[in-house]
Design a protein around this nucleic acid. Sequence first.
DNA 1: CTTTGACCTACACTTAGTGTAGCATAGTAC
DNA 2: GTACTATGCTACACTAAGTGTAGGTCAAAG
Lengths: 119, 119
Amino acid sequence: MFTIGQVAKEVGLNIGAVRFYESRGLLEPAARDEHNNRLYTNQEIKWLIFIKCLRETGMSVQEIKKYRNLVNVGTSTLPERIELIQNQKQKLLDEIEEKKSQLIHLDNKLERYFRGENY
Amino acid sequence: MFTIGQVAKEVGLNIGAVRFYESRGLLEPAARDEHNNRLYTNQEIKWLIFIKCLRETGMSVQEIKKYRNLVNVGTSTLPERIELIQNQKQKLLDEIEEKKSQLIHLDNKLERYFRGENY
DNA sequence: CTTTGACCTACACTTAGTGTAGCATAGTAC
DNA sequence: GTACTATGCTACACTAAGTGTAGGTCAAAG
């Protein structure tokens, strides 16, 4: 069993973030030792790494919570999980396109301002 | 002179957003009519459109405030304004790269989970 | 015996607005 | 004259995903 400090360091998260994920239901309420300090198993560390991975793709905490609930139900929910992932992928693709068009904004529209106008 | 509702509609912003920009110093405190309602000139509408444009490129309100301050100082600050814009452009480029690598996260790392592991 | 380090809870703060409550005012319909 | 609707005002609460801080507990180390 590991303390929250060890877990946070291992996973690469802020201690506060780990507690935050617990408060949002992404993690089960942690077991506690005799001093009320949180204790984590290897299993929970793995799940936390997975959460971090999903967060790094930009998936919201709420979506990850949904994902977590599906995992809890069992393998029958695999199609729905795949859908969540695919949605996230589409969201990323959309965001990339948006950023690219913002870039064109900067390259065109703003340079027009620089050449002819006041701002 | 135009009311805040007209301006918001014209520019394509929420009325609250216009007031918010004023509260953050992006806009000078608006002139008021005899009922304390805000009044805007064509000039101010143009500036607001420009603000919107910068916001659409993802520039923060704080950065736009800096930009505004530079405009107020005069044309001597053109190099600094160009620097702000270039910084913003670089930030966008970085974000696009980040999103792309998040996409690879989804395509590789997560599909590995789907094939072999539990989540 | 006291200090250091790790943990606890609860709360405030951040961004860029949006939404709401409670108010005033003006124009229109009856 | 009055009711309704639209528009505006201020001030406040709320959002996401944490981070940072205050104030407290506990054990080990010097």
